[in-house]
Design a protein around this nucleic acid. Structure first.
Length: 270
DNA sequence: AACATTCGCAACCGCCTGGGT
DNA sequence: GACCCAGGCGGTTGCGAATGT
């Protein structure tokens, strides 16, 4: 783990504070050409008077390709609220389920907006924004009712809630996939070895979500399926909320979901 | 217009973990 | 096994912009 070059690095005064466009360009050029490798040598090789940590943060949070800029969509906020309800302040885990969003961005959005909205929801005598528009349906909803729909079922105790979650930018089969959260916790080796998947808490069928019950089987009810329900058996039904994440389920039972032929990679992008 | 307050965001800080020596 | 270091993470801070008075 230790970098040879890092131990040879000269002691130079390191700059702090906001990054200039010139610094950004140097870092971007270097990482795009050579990769970051050991972050502690990046500023040396890129000619930057920054420390490796600062470079890493700047790259991850701002320069990295594929970052999504702009306001959070309703679906993204919904995902954050649900995952925060399950995981707490595990921003890096949450960010893995919001492609293009960084943990820092999510954390900031939570502290600056979502947390307050949830607090207001729990304490209804305080006023909240009069209305907001669902970008999917185009329907204007009161923030109050909308937030209720967002926060209604963020605990494991709940079983279902409705959500407009069809992603028009995805391939047609995408929205029929059981939406599996925490896919990054899986090992590709496990998949390719056709062993087991780590248990996912939440699955969806595009227009409806069904959260996994506290015990028993994970159920999906996929529209358009010849068989209206699919059952994914958890190997261990006696689990606590935390254990939910670690239960094992049979891979092939998910993989033959709805008779469709899915690639494992499809799940990873959900 | 001037000042105060709030908001949003970028970046830093400190701690923890894991791997190398 | 102890120590060192890089990387990763969550909490916090600082500052400019936006908004309110």
């Amino acid at each position: 783990m230790r970098c040879k070059l890092a131990s040879e690095k000269p002691k130079m005064k390191q700059k702090k504070g906001l990054w200039s466009p010139d610094e950004d360009q140097k870092l971007r050029d270097y990482v795009m050409n050579y990769g970051h490798g050991c972050w502690s040598v990046v500023p040396i090789n890129a000619g930057l008077q920054r420390n490796g940590k600062s470079c890493r943060l700047r790259w991850i949070n701002y320069l990295r390709p594929g970052l999504k800029k702009g306001a959070f969509s309703i679906q993204e906020e919904e995902t954050i609220l649900n995952l925060h309800g399950l995981l707490g302040n595990k921003w890096s885990l949450i960010s893995q389920h919001l492609p293009g969003r960084t943990d820092n961005e999510i954390k900031n959005h939570w502290h600056s907006y979502l947390k307050k909205q949830v607090q207001k929801q729990e304490n209804p005598e305080t006023t909240i924004k009069p209305e907001c528009t669902n970008s999917d349906t185009g329907h204007t909803e009161s923030s109050s009712s909308y937030l209720k729909s967002l926060t209604r079922n963020t605990s494991f105790d709940s079983l279902t809630y409705n959500s407009s979650s069809v992603d028009m930018d995805q391939p047609a089969h995408f929205n029929k996939l059981p939406k599996i959260l925490f896919a990054d916790w899986l090992g590709l080796e496990e998949f390719h070895g056709h062993e087991t998947l780590v248990c996912k808490e939440e699955i969806s069928n595009g227009s409806n979500y069904q959260e996994a019950p506290l015990s028993g089987n994970l159920l999906t009810n996929n529209e358009g399926s010849t068989d209206s329900s699919e059952t994914v058996n958890c190997l261990d039904n006696n689990y606590s909320n935390e254990d939910m994440f670690h239960n094992q389920m049979k891979l092939d039972q998910i993989f033959n979901f709805n008779g469709a032929d899915f690639n494992f990679e499809d799940f990873l992008y959900i």
